[in-house]
Write a protein that binds this DNA or RNA. Structure first.
Length: 417
DNA sequence: TCTGGGGTCCTAGGACCC
DNA sequence: TCTGGGGTCCTAGGACCC
């Protein structure tokens, strides 16, 4: 059976989603049609471009660049703030339409997915026709556009979608590689970033065709396993199957925050660490997981980052245990000076099922587990702001770090641990 | 005026064991 | 006194994606 993969990608997702919402609320201007962008808050030192409209792209505005720099390129650029709750709802709506179209789909990011269409031609018609049907359905039901790519493997379907934007269907079958893929700069290939581009160019390889025709042993010698992968991609080889999203386990949880002001001492930093830890531990428990490795990174005002990690003697999902480990890592990492950003992650995950129960023999642990469980129930019922570490009283400016917890307007109560 | 946040995967070096 | 090599685990850091 011939393999057919379809890839769908929302055009300028964050910007489109905000634009659709504003139009529904009565705005007369469609942000997608003028130079515009979604940007972070400059006052909170998060002033970068998160998504831009196609007209903004024509001015050279790029995702990830500082807002002031983008405005230099395009003085009339309209900047709107991000709305993550909206994006999460829009992403879910998008995936519902896709799943309705075909259950054999894999969500690849907030605004992208793959569908395995193999063997479905007899029921739903030629893949190009089906892809166009999906494009129309999303536009009619949700009001935003997608680019859809069709090919015989995931990487080519994804690259196909890049060929024509917005609101379009493109194919990139193996027979079309020479015409459509190979003339493109090597940087356009999936997984070729700035560093790899530099190495490839130094080897005399500047377009995808040159990579496809190069000696794979030589590429492997310079770029390792990764080199073999991109060489295969350039030749349209990608056996990676479409795995439904509910069958792809989460590998790690992480949370980080750039602070509105630099912090200068452990007394200021530890409360933030505590906040991140309780928020992330809650998220991990909600996912039914325990971790065996905790990591911490600190970024100073010069953007130098240091990271340390530690393997636990046994897996844990208990907030105060995780915080104890993170605090020890902090003192190992922190050499004094200013801290601009702080991040933590929990990895090497295992299922929490039955695990906590086995720790109940230890009375002090049992207490901690009960405390976490009670806090989680309160958060689930009354929202993440219903409970906060008492340390937050000393640093209320960091209250916004819990954006992954459920929201509620109920009054907050401080919890003494 | 600078430069977010959440992920995955790979590599390399050191420790340790057999 | 001087000397092996293979395997695994742990940790730090980098590259890439959206």
């Amino acid at each position: 059976m011939k393999r057919i993969i379809i890839h769908a990608d929302v055009n300028s997702a964050f910007l489109s989603w905000s634009a659709v919402r504003l139009l529904r609320e009565g705005a007369c201007q469609d942000l997608r049609l003028i130079p515009s962008a979604v940007g972070g808050d400059e006052k909170l030192r998060k002033g970068i471009i998160l998504a831009k409209s196609i007209p903004a792209k024509k001015y050279g505005v790029t995702t990830g660049e500082p807002i002031w720099q983008a405005k230099k390129k395009c003085p009339d650029l309209v900047i709107i703030p991000g709305d993550y709750a909206l994006y999460s709802r829009m992403s879910n709506s998008f995936m519902s339409v896709v799943k309705d179209f075909s259950p054999l789909c894999q969500q690849f990011s907030v605004d992208e997915c793959f569908i395995d269409y193999s063997g479905m031609e007899k029921v739903l018609g030629p893949p190009e026709q089906a892809a166009d049907e999906l494009r129309k359905r999303v536009k009619e039901r949700l009001g935003f556009t997608v680019s859809v790519g069709v090919s015989t493997c995931k990487v080519l379907a994804k690259m196909a979608g890049e060929l024509k934007k917005p609101d379009a269907v493109s194919t990139l079958y193996p027979s079309e590689l020479e015409e459509k893929l190979w003339p493109l700069p090597v940087r356009e290939l999936f997984l070729v970033g700035r560093a790899t581009e530099k190495k490839l160019v130094s080897l005399g390889i500047s377009n995808i065709g040159a990579l496809a025709h190069s000696d794979p042993q030589m590429i492997k010698k310079y770029l390792g396993l990764y080199g073999t992968t991109i060489w295969e991609y350039s030749n349209g080889i990608d056996p990676d199957p479409v795995i439904p999203s509910d069958k792809t386990p989460v590998k790690s949880y992480s949370q980080s925050a750039t602070l509105p002001v630099d912090l200068l001492s452990p007394d200021e930093i530890i409360p933030v660490l505590s906040k991140l830890c309780s928020s992330l531990a809650y998220r991990m428990r909600s996912g039914g997981a325990c971790c065996s490795v905790v990591s911490l990174y600190l970024k100073d005002s010069s953007f130098n980052a240091v990271a340390h990690q530690h393997r636990l003697s046994r897996p844990s999902d208990i907030t105060c245990e995780l915080l104890k480990e993170l605090t020890a890592l902090f003192y190992k990492t922190y050499q004094g000076g200013s801290v601009r950003a702080i991040g933590i992650s929990f990895s090497d995950l295992c299922s929490a099922e039955g695990f906590s129960l086995s720790l109940f023999d230890d009375r002090s642990l049992a207490k901690k587990i009960i405390i976490d469980g009670t806090c989680d129930k309160i958060k689930n019922r009354y929202g993440g702001k219903a409970l906060s570490p008492a340390s937050e009283l000393l640093s209320p400016q960091f209250a916004h770090l819990t954006r992954y917890e459920p929201t509620s307007d109920r009054p907050r109560t401080f919890c003494p641990f």
